[in-house]
């Protein structure tokens, strides 16, 4: 009884915090206090959070290193724009089409490649990500290398906010479900999981498909904010950008992914004029984090859940001290 009430209280608090965050930003935008420049970076932050959280499901929780996330983002972006700009359907349909297309692509690529082991899988996904880009560049219907321009701006703050929250909620709930436990068991010990009757291929593909679908969402949001999409934008360096966020935040930590995505976006703003330096810093982050804290800054999964609760509810959960 006590427990149930506490859970309700927590939920209510979450809703209030989120609503407050939403309203404050909405107010700042409406009154023009948050100018265009900051709005752009706020949008990038939201999109990066979606990308990092969804890649974390694959790389962090499932333990399958994918280096082709930008490819799925590209598919989501182009599929959504085909629906909205080229065929004239509403934005909502565009978003769903983008997610669906990316998820289907994730399935088609995931089924053969996920049989591969860790580092081979990484190279294969990197290859597929690049192939997606090259194929898109050679489809004249979507403008070839020039891509599509003149996309209406439909990614408003409410849309972005809701999409980001939904992504986090869906992925967190998935991880905490029985699916999630199966997925994590694959990461912890694939052979043992198999022996215990977990269909590892199924769960790996599932995580891959869900992750790809949300990358598609990020792509759709991206396309409808920046007016123009080109396949070149989604090259493997973009995948590495997302990987840096996941690695920095913690492989298997959703909060970590969120914080790291926000941090990296901000870092990008500070270093706008020093792109080469930015990449050098990214490189150092990858090396240093792997050597000194291979689980990422926010640590392993047990810590994640607890610290997640802490941050989420704004108070200490007693079990944290266990």
């Amino acid at each position: 009884m006590e427990d149930k009430r506490r859970r309700w209280g927590k939920f209510l608090l979450e809703v209030i915090v989120l609503a407050a965050l939403f309203t404050v930003v909405q107010y700042l935008i409406a009154t023009g206090l948050l100018n265009r420049y900051y709005q752009i970076n706020l949008t990038l932050m939201g999109i990066n959070i979606i990308l990092a959280v969804s890649l974390n499901l694959i790389n962090g929780f499932t333990g399958q290193l994918s280096l082709g996330h930008a490819g799925f983002m590209a598919i989501g972006a182009f599929a959504s724009v085909i629906m909205t700009t080229l065929l004239g359907y509403p934005f909502m349909i565009g978003i769903l089409a983008g997610m669906l297309a990316a998820a289907v692509a994730g399935f088609i690529i995931g089924v053969p490649t996920l049989r591969l082991k860790g580092d081979y899988l990484a190279i294969a996904t990197l290859g597929f990500g690049e192939i997606i880009r090259v194929v898109l560049q050679n489809i004249d219907y979507i403008g070839g290398p020039a891509g599509i321009s003149g996309i209406s701006k439909m990614t408003t703050w409410p849309v972005l906010f809701i999409a980001t929250v939904i992504t986090i909620v869906v992925i967190v709930n998935m991880i905490n479900s029985s699916y999630g436990r199966a997925i994590i068991s694959v990461r912890e010990d694939e052979i043992a999981a198999e022996i215990m009757g977990v269909n590892t291929t199924k769960y790996k593909v599932l995580a891959f498909v869900v992750g790809a679908g949300f990358a598609g969402l990020a792509g759709a949001l991206y396309a409808h904010y920046f007016y123009i999409i080109k396949p070149e934008t989604f090259n493997f360096l973009k995948s590495f950008d997302i990987l840096v966020m996941v690695v920095l935040g913690g492989l298997g930590s959703t909060t970590g992914a969120v914080i790291a995505a926000a941090f990296i976006t901000a870092l990008n703003v500070v270093l706008q004029e020093y792109a080469a330096v930015r990449m050098i810093i990214y490189a150092l982050i990858l090396i240093i984090v792997m050597i000194y804290r291979p689980q990422g800054l926010l640590g392993n999964k047990e810590l994640t859940r607890r610290s997640f609760d802490k941050i989420w509810s704004g108070r200490h959960v007693s079990s944290a001290n266990k």
Binding site: N35, R36, Y37, I40, N41, L44, Y222, F226, Y227, I228, I229, K230, T233, Q272, E273, Y274, A275
Partner: peptide, 20 residues
């Protein structure tokens, strides 16, 4: 002088900053 990193989104970002 600002760098757009050869990216379309950064080009937009840079323009917004320059307008500012």
């Amino acid at each position: 002088v600002r760098d757009n990193q050869s990216k379309t989104d950064e080009a937009m970002n840079v323009s917004a900053a320059l307008v500012d």
